[in-house]
Design a binder for these strands. Structure first.
Lengths: 200, 200
DNA sequence: CGCAATCTTGCACGGACTGCACTCTTGGGC
DNA sequence: GCCCAAGAGTGCAGTCCGTGCAAGATTGCG
């Protein structure tokens, strides 16, 4: 699983850099923290920082680049006879549970920090965008449609992103007192019903 | 309407900077163009550039900051008895027609450039995000729901963004040979139906 | 015509990020 | 255990982005 010492060390510094970046920015704000600060707290040279993250912002978010393919893979792994929406709901149920269950409450902290820095929000959305593109391909494969030609795959992928972002937004607004998977589920209920106006 | 000479000149340089940025980046790529280059082509000093745009990326996109409130305003202006989805469809019909009708084909060029530079895509999505937040407030006001508490307003706003982005994506993919408003409309048809799997 | 507000510009600076070259560590063959 | 090749960490120098400040030019208005 975790192969050599080399791999483990590399992962460790990556995590250390992310933690340092996230915590420092939470304390001092994005502009109050320099790359040098982050590198110092993680005990590496400033130059090394850029061997791990291409950008200060990326270090703060600390997203695993492999994550962008994850949703698409899990979607593709669902039983073939399943409705696309049903399959997607299942995938996001898993994912949201995983996010909520991460140790140290990384996601809550991430979301708080992101909420205060529009730039990071843009970066996060860009990451979602990567997932969505991969997901659109998977949806196209499953439904026999074509990305770019038919509306369905791109739209469904984008809507999935919308569902997740909405859920995250409400999760933050509720100060993380509500289970994230439930919020995701509620979003899909509204979507599957065709977005009817709520009765007042 | 257009008041003094001052105002007109200011707008002119703003447009000049945007055009210069967009065209240069289309020619040489984002990294092949510096702020100095852009300022030079627009005939202003490099320092002045930053009086108009906070960022090189923003100059390339050249979005009017007032646009972020536009969708919400038009939505609020729709007849009160209208279904939220219906109202939103009408707003996006107007907007997409306006975008497609802009002189010089600015939007096609923008989209081509954005397509080649993920960073710009992130910035563009951030701009959409601004619109969506304002829109969510408007939806909340209309439906008597609360942003952050209820799913509906944030979700509907996010879905509207998804519809528009999907339409823009297909517009680009079709090399702008299909009318944008039709693509927007198709997206909403699928959404209003609850995202049923397309029959193969 | 002349003053006040506003724009433009140059200067200097800090921070992000990159290419290059050098050193140090790790992993594997012997 | 020894050695060497690959990979990782580091320092240095340099480019470009973006900002505060203060001086110079332009416009609007009385």
């Amino acid at each position: 699983m975790t192969s050599g010492l080399r791999e483990r060390k590399k992962l460790a510094t990556r995590v250390a850099l992310h933690q340092a970046a996230l915590q420092l920015v939470a304390e001092r704000g994005l502009d109050g923290v320099s790359v040098d600060d982050i590198a110092a707290r993680a005990d590496v040279s400033p130059r090394t920082f850029f061997n791990y993250f291409p950008t200060k912002d990326d270090a703060v978010l600390g997203l695993d680049p492999a994550d962008s393919a994850l949703a698409a893979e899990r979607f593709a792994a669902r039983p073939a006879e399943e409705d696309p929406v049903t399959a997607l709901r299942a995938v996001q149920a898993e994912q949201s549970a995983a996010m909520a269950g991460e140790p140290q409450g990384v996601w809550p902290l991430r979301l708080r920090v992101v909420d205060e820095h529009p730039v990071l929000l843009a970066r996060l959305h860009a990451a979602f965008g990567g997932s969505e593109r991969a997901l659109a391909d998977a949806v196209a494969a499953r439904t026999g449609t074509r990305v770019g030609v038919d509306a369905y795959p791109t739209l469904l992928a984008a809507v999935a992103g919308a569902a997740m972002r909405t859920a995250l937004h409400r999760w933050l607004a509720a100060d993380f007192t509500v289970p994230l998977p439930r919020l995701v589920d509620e979003a899909w209920d509204v979507l599957a019903a065709g977005l009817p106006a709520p009765r007042r």
